[in-house]
Structure formats: structure tokens, C-alpha cells
Design a protein around this nucleic acid. Structure first.
Lengths: 201, 201
DNA sequence: CAACCACCAGACCGATCGGTCTATTCCCTC
DNA sequence: GAGGGAATAGACCGATCGGTCTGGTGGTTG
């Protein structure tokens, strides 16, 4: 659900939207099989789009990967924020793990796309890798906000520590859920997070 | 430091050991750049070994990858066990995180090879993937043993839960340390783990 | 000595990689 | 209706992929 680049903002938007189809196809394939295991030809075949259309919208495969991750990051965070922030502030830390549990049990769950993509990135200075760390950072910030709202009395440094602890717990839960088994993982993570929160007063 | 397969166990061990050189080269390259990003030719070039020697010792690239992971798993677990079990039983849960901290700060640390390799595995039924889940499982078992020794009064189900919680915390810490920054991560994870342990009585 | 075997160098295979180029068609706006 | 931009199919590029094959070398063992 991201901003839909060239749809109504610019006047050149009456085609069938090859860009969106490419991003959708790339997303499925890259997430499922890994970035390096999927070639350009497979992406365009799945998208039902000509190769030149790909290179009209993206500079390179790396650029497509980066665009996919950027879009996925935006969409995933939007989903999580909407999901968590529709409950009262005091319930949000708990709701975070309910959302995780739901996500872990989606049919094609294959772990965190950003952790996975980071493992394949050739260079930590690449745009791809930076989007991945940015994702972690943004998730950390969101969690910090939810904790702060639910526990307004927390000192800044305590809050920072708790947010990092819980983000790490979430990351571990994602990894466990995907490599091992998704059942009950979120609940165990929730309890660990609750202990961290309680210990922070 | 693994068992050095065909060195003295079998009588055919007076060559220069192409197999070991291949595993060493493959290990460096696969861990650093990712399995799918490294070709056979690059491995044999780094190993200083002929291509036919590779296919003499391994059936395929996948087989080489699996052999590397298997060896790495054995070596890593041996390192961790030795490191943790040289302190008294009551200190072992804490020592686990000291070992993690040391690992996170090694020069070429690039996260968990097994999490990374699992992300690239084409099939969850592949040998590669199974070694990765096996690694998680063995780590979980080791942690469970250390907790059990340090807290003998724990009930079986409580012990299981605590071991899972702490394994997840470790996994999250590894991910954070590699994608974000290694400093202080192990200490934060240690404190979370301590809370889990305390809550288990 | 002869047989064997791990290892070597490197040509070779078809397939696929990321990416370029041409030529053509469609649709929308002047 | 003409022009232009977005889309199309598909040939083509050099490089690399995983893997095979040939032919030869040197050391060990019977």
C-alpha cells in the first residue's frame, strides 16, 4: 500500500502499470527464494512484462531489489502500526505480539525479508543493506513509542534499553518462528518482553 | 577444529589435503558473501585446488555447502561448549553471553551462518536447511543443559520454556549485533535472560 | 616395477546470468 | 490525424554458472 509512484502525481499514468506488476512479482519471488536465487528473466515472466519495461523503470536488478525492500518496509510498518495502534495505549506492547503471532502463521511466512536480504547483500554500504538496517531502526523506534505511551514514567535511558531488549526479542522470535516452528513463539516472546517491561518499573 | 576426516583414520592420507583446503576456502567465501553469491570457480581459486578435486570429494555444490555447514556447526558448538563449561555450573548461563560478546566482536563477524544460509536455502527439505534447524536445536539443547545444571530445582516444562526463551534472546542478539552494532548487545541480552531465569524461580 | 590413486591444468558443455538493442504496436494527447 | 511515450517480443551480448571430460604427474603401496 505505498504511495503508488507514477499513478496520479504525474500526468503520464494511463498505462497498465508495469512498475507495480514488477514490484509485486519481484516481491513474491525474492521473498520466497532469496534475491540471488532469482534471475531477471523469472521476474519479468511472472510479472508478464517485457524486459525493457523493467529497465525503463529501474536502473538495475539492485535497484529493483532496493525498490522492493523500500516498498515492503513501508507497507509492513504501516500494517503493524495500524494493527497495534487500534488498541488502547496500555495494551499496545501486548498487541505487538498478537500481531507477530498472526504474521508468523500466514501461509507464506518465510521470516523477516530484511534479515534475509541483509544476509545476501554483497556490501554493507549498499542501498539494499541500508534499507535493512533502516527497517530494524524504524521498528525499534515504533516499539519505543509504544512503550513510552504505555509507561509514561520511564526515564529516557531505561526506555531506550527496554525498547532495544524487546526489539531483540522480536527479532529472535521471528527467526525461531521461521526456522523452527511458529506455534507459541509469539506468546513466549510476549512473556519475556513483559518481564523486561516490569523490570524497568 | 573438527575431526579432520581423512587424515589418520584412513590409510589414504598422504596427499596435501584438498578436501580441507576446499572446506576452509568455501567457509570463508560462503560466510562472507553468501552461498548463492559465490561460484565454484571462486572457491577452487581460493583453495588453490583443481576443479576435479572438488568433484572428487563432493557430489555437487550443494554437497559442499552442506559439508561446510556441518563442519562449522561441529566446530562452533565445540568452541561454545568449551568456553562455557570451563566455568562453574552456576556461572554458565552468564558465561554464555560473555562468549557471545566475544564472538560479536571478532573481526569478520557476519551474523549466524546458519540463519543466513537458511535464508538462501531453496527448499526447507534440503539437507542445507536441515543442518541449519539442527544447529538451532542443538544450541537450544546445550542452553537447556546449562540452565538445568545451574537451577536443578526447575520443573521440566519450566526448564523447556526458559531454554526456548533464552535461545530466542540469543538469536535476536546475534541478528542485532550483525545488522546494527555489536557493542553492548550481549550484555542487554544477558539481562533479559536473567529476568527470564529469575521468573522461572 | 607396476598399479593405483589423489591431484593437477584447463578445455569444454549447455544454461543462465544481468543487461542492451531493435523493431513494432498501442493509446493518449495535442 | 500526427506525434510521442509506454509498452511489447525477442534477438543478442559477454560473462559466469554448475558440472563434465581428457590427459597427465607424482607419490605410495602391493
Amino acid at each position: 500500500m505505498p504511495a503508488a509512484r507514477s499513478k496520479s502525481a504525474s500526468p503520464k499514468a494511463r498505462n497498465r502499470g508495469a512498475r507495480e506488476k514488477l514490484l509485486a512479482a519481484a516481491g513474491e519471488l525474492f521473498y520466497k527464494h532469496g534475491v540471488n536465487a532469482v534471475g531477471i528473466d523469472r521476474v519479468i515472466a511472472k510479472a508478464g512484462v517485457a524486459k525493457m519495461s523493467l529497465y525503463h523503470h529501474f536502473d538495475s536488478k539492485d535497484d529493483l531489489v532496493a525498490a522492493w525492500l523500500q516498498e515492503k518496509h513501508t507497507a509492513w510498518m504501516a500494517w503493524l502500526v495500524e494493527r497495534v495502534e487500534r488498541v488502547p495505549v496500555n495494551d499496545r506492547p501486548r498487541e505487538l505480539f498478537a500481531a507477530m503471532d498472526e504474521w508468523f502463521h500466514t501461509p507464506d511466512f518465510k521470516g523477516c525479508a530484511f534479515i534475509n536480504a541483509a544476509a545476501e547483500a554483497k556490501d554493507p554500504r549498499s542501498k539494499t543493506f541500508q534499507i535493512c538496517t533502516g527497517h530494524t531502526s524504524d521498528l525499534h523506534d515504533a516499539i519505543k513509542g509504544w512503550i513510552a505511551a504505555a509507561h509514561p514514567a520511564l526515564a529516557a535511558d531505561t526506555l531506550s534499553r527496554a525498547a532495544q531488549d524487546i526489539t531483540m526479542i522480536v527479532a529472535g522470535a521471528i527467526t525461531w518462528a521461521w526456522m523452527y516452528a511458529p506455534d507459541g513463539v509469539a506468546e513466549r516472546a510476549r512473556q519475556s518482553a513483559e518481564l523486561v517491561l516490569r523490570a524497568s518499573h
